[in-house]
Amino acid sequence: MEPGVILEWVIKSVVILISMTAGFAYTTWYERKVLAKMQVRIGPNRAGPFALLQPVADGIKLIFKEELVPAEADKLIFNLAPVITVIPALIVTAVVPWGGVLDINGFKLSLALTDTNLAILYIMTVTSISVYGITLAGWSSNNKYAMLGGLRATAQMISYELALGLSLVGPVLVAGTMSLGKIVEMQQGGWFILFQPVAAIIYFIAIIAEVNRAPFDMPEAEQELTAGYHTEYSGMKFALFFMAEYAKMVAVSMIGATVFLGGYLGPFLDIAPWLGPVWLWVKVAVLLFVFIWIRATSPRIRYDRLMAFGWKILFPLALANVLVTAVVVAFMGGK
């Protein structure tokens, strides 16, 4: 193994981390701007042109805030929980290809950190780790609201994870592989949202619940639980939870765009392969807009209805989708 290869990995990893953190920062900006427009407000407009420096200002402010630890909290777990929550959000997009192979003066540069044939399984494994961080945060705070919020978040996330997992089985059936690179290549004949519309809808509903966004933001329902599992967190540790939520939003949008919306595919890709990442991020921005749109439009649904919806509608529907897809693939000989 040459040092050049390791350097390439390090550079790509740093690019992924920077894009996830910058993605987090500018998703908050994007959300505040879009929400303001939808509610006929002005929104942030002071820090820099179009308030583009607002996320930086927020970050600097949080660095200089006092961090409180409740007296009876489990200190070790309390400090560890935000770290455990944020790591999966940062690493989950490792398997997503950003483009094909670039040819720079004879040097072949693949625009993917890695293309493993277990990509879908990797995604499901990593996303389920972040549940631990949230449970531990709620548990270690020694606060009634935090514990209730943590429990609710856990129950909700694991319930919707079933539908999420099954919604990804459909595209795998059609593609015959779990590698995201190959799944994207197969979508040159048509995006998988056309062949798997039900799976795409289930995936999108399930990820909203998975990242605890409105209308499924029960874990942090302000009116009843103050701030849910991160009630007791302040300063940079609160920022980590915030980062985890928004980085996860970016990550699941990127995975959804890759599996259902053709990933980095787009017009003019054959003459300019560097457009791959551009198309991917355009699709991510569209999906993020839908997230924000839903938050601006729909009210929070009641917790028992949320759980009933996950178990009684989404899960059987996802199962039926898998079986119908299998029947079609078996008798049509696959697309």
Binding site: I6, S13, I16, L17, I87, L90, I91, A94, V95, L113
Partner: peptide, 10 residues
């Protein structure tokens, strides 16, 4: 490469 990314993320 995922290992490298995990180390940097941690």
């Amino acid at each position: 490469p995922i290992g490298v990314l995990i180390i940097l993320a941690v």
